[in-house]
Design a binder for these strands. Structure first.
Lengths: 163, 163
DNA sequence: TCACAGCGTTTGCAATTGCAAGCAGCGCGA
DNA sequence: TCGCGCTGCTTGCAATTGCAAACGCTGTGA
């Protein structure tokens, strides 16, 4: 576990605050917490709750995640090398959708020849967002709609919205 | 709007727990919290700290971020499209499979309004040939086989391979 | 009919959070 | 020398967290 010091959350906050060139009281005001409590947090005398942490993050204009990671409350970033893990972790999917995705994925994994793991990125010269060989399985998507949610939406052409 | 009630964290936990088919005591044990406290959390009588939340997430085998987002402790500013990342990174999927998975996932994301996985049950009065009771869309999996590879395999019952 | 095991819930209680009030120090203008 | 405002820190104290123990309920086997 090469995790950073959990207690460094206070130092991290103080560091961020000083870099922002604001006083402890100012940050306390912006974050909506009391000055003395913030003081104790920065010196590691208190272990703030997630709500306080979130408010402090807002006051510092930094990501809440960054603070949570520093506080050791989030496995830093959780690199989901596992598709199933990522699907399970997605809070915006319904349980039904999750199950469908996992099932499809597992069926793929079972069928897939596990031999071409050598950077299959170039396995298929896919140039556009759509596969050229054949049209996308719109039938699937249309059929999946009842599993997703209301509002029949056939527009599923992928928009390459990788963040 | 998007995050109506923060207190729904308890419902979310209970939902996840029941879908995992484990008892309150089992989850409490796995998460390292007391059973009565977990009971109170699930019913919204207590507001757990981030540490407890983190442990519960571990016990549920879900992402801490998912819980934090549900708890309103993280601005869902960064929608975890980790699913797409994971799909893209999976070396065992063919390009076509990858595309199908991403398309399905994105269609889910577009249709699903995050929180109401319950209401979506009755969202579609006009149902297909099968009723909603059907646990899993085997028809989809069967139809997807040509997109995966030869060798028909219909055994895709949810085995919930909890590691 | 018991006894046992499991379920979720309720009940006190120690420990902790988080705050209002107050304290000590520093810089500045009168 | 004061006073004023700012810095951060210390001190009680109400409110809350989180837990151990016990409760009521249901199902199962002797």
């Amino acid at each position: 576990m090469a995790l950073p010091k959990v207690g460094s959350i206070g130092e991290y906050i103080r560091d961020q605050r000083q870099q922002a060139k604001i006083s402890l009281r100012q940050l306390a005001e912006a974050a909506g917490v009391s000055n003395p409590y913030l003081s104790q947090i920065e010196r590691g005398l208190r272990k703030p709750s997630a709500e306080i942490l979130n408010q402090i993050a807002k006051g510092l204009r930094i990501s809440s995640q960054a603070l949570y990671v520093q506080a050791g409350l989030i496995e830093d970033r959780e690199p989901p090398s596992d598709v199933i893990t990522a699907i399970r972790a997605d809070p915006l999917l319904s349980e039904r959708q999750r199950q469908v995705l996992i099932d499809i994925y597992e069926s793929f994994r079972k069928e897939a020849p596990a031999g071409d793991e050598q950077t299959s990125q170039h396995a298929h010269p896919q140039r556009g967002p759509e596969t050229d060989d054949e049209p996308l399985p719109e039938e699937f998507l249309a059929a999946l709609e009842p599993y997703a949610a209301p509002s029949g939406n056939g527009n599923v052409t992928q928009e390459t919205k990788e963040g």
